[in-house]
Computed example of a mutant assay.
Amino acid sequence: MSERTGLITFLGGGLTLVGNPVGVGDAAPEFAVLTNELAPAKLADFPEKGLILIAVPSLDTAVCDLEARKFNKEMESLSGKAKALVISMDLPFAQKRWAEAAGVTNIVTLSDHRDASFGQAYGLLIKELRLLARAVLVLGPDRKVAYLELVKEVTNEPDYAAALAALGKVL
């Protein structure tokens, strides 16, 4: 398991990412997470032609909340073609409560809290905080990474337009 520094910050302070980093062109690694109903879920459970994997530190924060809502809105027109998975270390109970309160229906929230399987498989686990780094990955039908943005400052939003453009190219 590798550790990388100098890639992300939180309020300007450097953090360490743990896990096996992936890059554009790589096969997307499998992972094991939990649904809001505590059922196991993995990458293979989502057969849509295109997938957006959205890693966020916590849906209980303003930026993560905003990001998930924006992607939810954008995914309205892509039903049946693409799916957005929002993955955090939040407990499934908290994710379910958030999703119900936010009224989101076009994204799937998944919890990596149990094993940090997703965070480690994609090199996005923040060692100092045991949270996920903010990142957006687009996977095509071949389940290869077509786009990857690791947001340098954890408190900043991703480039929505670039991620959605990349998704459009794989559909």
Rank of each mutant, 00 (worst) to 15 (best):
K152E: 13
S111T: 13
L43G: 15
L131A: 13
L17E: 09
M75I: 14
V56I: 14
A41C: 07
D142K: 04
V33M: 02
L15V: 10
F10W: 14
Y122E: 06
L124I: 05
E3V: 09
K127D: 07
V33Y: 02
D159L: 01
A135V: 06
T61R: 06
W98H: 02
P158S: 15
H113L: 12
L132K: 01
L7K: 12
V145K: 12
L125V: 00
I87W: 03
L150W: 10
S2W: 01
A62N: 03
K81D: 07
M75P: 06
R134G: 08
A39H: 11
L11N: 15
M1F: 08
S117P: 05
V145N: 12
R130P: 00
D112N: 07
S58N: 04
A165D: 11
M75N: 13
L171D: 01
P57Y: 00
L125P: 02
G50K: 08
K73E: 10
A116H: 13
E74C: 02
L17N: 04
L150F: 08
V63N: 05
P29H: 13
A146M: 07
A163R: 11
L17R: 05
A41K: 06
F71H: 06
A116W: 09
L139V: 04
P92V: 11
L110R: 05
S79D: 01
G19S: 12
L129Q: 06
L11F: 14
L51S: 14
K49N: 11
G50V: 07
S79F: 01
P158Q: 14
T5F: 01
T5D: 06
E3Q: 07
S111N: 08
A32R: 15
N106M: 00
A62Q: 05
W98C: 00
V56L: 11
A41Q: 09
S88N: 07
V18E: 08
F10K: 15
Y122K: 09
G140F: 06
F71T: 03
H113G: 03
G50P: 09
K169A: 13
E100A: 07
V138W: 10
L167G: 03
W98P: 05
T61C: 05
V18I: 07
A101C: 02
R97T: 05
L167W: 00
A32L: 14
N20F: 05
F118K: 11
I126R: 00
A101M: 03
G6V: 03
P141N: 14
E153H: 13
R134Y: 02
P158T: 12
K152H: 15
E157D: 08
L34V: 06
C64H: 04
L139E: 09
D65Y: 06
E100R: 10
L150R: 11
